[in-house]
């Protein structure tokens, strides 16, 4: 099933890059596009995408959430696959859009249709693309944080680990309570900052206890929260999105929250 043995042209994949990656870490978007191209797909990035609407949806602002959901559905209507480097945003589209639009049957149908075509990145690579990606070397000890939405709404747990297992030199050390929330929770982290701080402190303690020098996850929200706390506590653990590790771009890109001279 290697790339060389499957020359059949593959459909164009739409990359839904997510607002956080768009604004704060384009390197994750590029790594994702690179992985998809290496898997034989051509990648489109529709310009009309902004956000999946989760902030409105989770704040109870159903009207705005619906408007944005419809925009996303319309934007990605033509693509065979929509790939998202985030379990949280992919979860919003697949697990929540159909319910959000349940009162408008045509839109609900369109939402179910989009849900069927939408994939979180690591799951897409393992379950749909099914190709051996080019070998990547990255000598590091890493621990993996399971983001809640990806884990519980989409069942993503083995896929990123399977892919990381093929990175030469990368040793995975599981942390305690890897399935427990890091305390990000979207707007939760600024509405209840002290509770959020406790949760992320627990997470950072568990990360540090593994002795790993890197923490990897599939969601930029969790990673920003974790990296921000790691830096505040001056813990020497670098944070990367899983796409950056798999694409091999993490070796040349400063980790999350690290600058040219940090």
């Amino acid at each position: 099933m290697s790339q060389a043995s499957s020359p059949a042209p593959r459909p164009t994949v739409a990359l839904f890059v997510t607002c956080l990656v768009d604004l704060f870490r384009p390197s994750v978007g590029f790594a994702t596009a690179q992985l998809l191209e290496q898997a034989g797909y051509s990648v489109d990035v529709p310009e009309a995408q902004t956000c999946c609407g989760q902030p409105a949806y989770n704040s109870g602002d159903r009207a705005h959430a619906k408007q944005i959901a419809k925009q996303v559905i319309a934007t990605f209507r033509e693509y065979a696959h929509v790939v998202v480097p985030s379990g949280s945003c992919a979860g919003t589209i697949t697990a929540h859009y159909p319910d959000l639009l349940r009162d408008e049957p045509d839109w609900a149908q369109a939402a179910r249709d989009l849900a069927d075509r939408t994939w979180e990145l690591t799951r897409f690579l393992v379950e749909v693309a099914q190709v051996d990606l080019p070998t990547v070397d990255h000598k590091t000890t890493t621990t993996y944080h399971d983001s809640c939405s990806g884990l519980r709404e989409l069942g993503i747990r083995s896929q990123p680990r399977q892919l990381l297992g093929r990175v030469n030199g990368l040793q995975l050390r599981e942390m305690a309570d890897t399935d427990v929330c890091c305390g990000f929770g979207g707007t939760f982290c600024v509405k209840y900052p002290d509770i959020s701080e406790r949760l992320v402190s627990n997470k950072v303690d568990n990360i540090a206890a593994t002795g790993a020098d890197m923490v990897v996850a599939g969601d930029l929200g969790c990673l920003f929260n974790i990296a921000g706390r790691l830096h505040r506590l001056e813990k020497p653990v670098r944070a990367y999105h899983v796409a950056e590790i798999l694409a091999g771009t993490a070796r040349s890109e400063p980790a999350i929250g690290e600058g040219d001279r940090s």
Partner: peptide, 23 residues
Amino acid sequence: AGAWTAGRDFPAPQRTTFQAAWR
């Protein structure tokens, strides 16, 4: 961003947005 930075650093964005960089 005081609620965020009370207990965490705020990671700085990279040079530009993905949309701009991709174009």
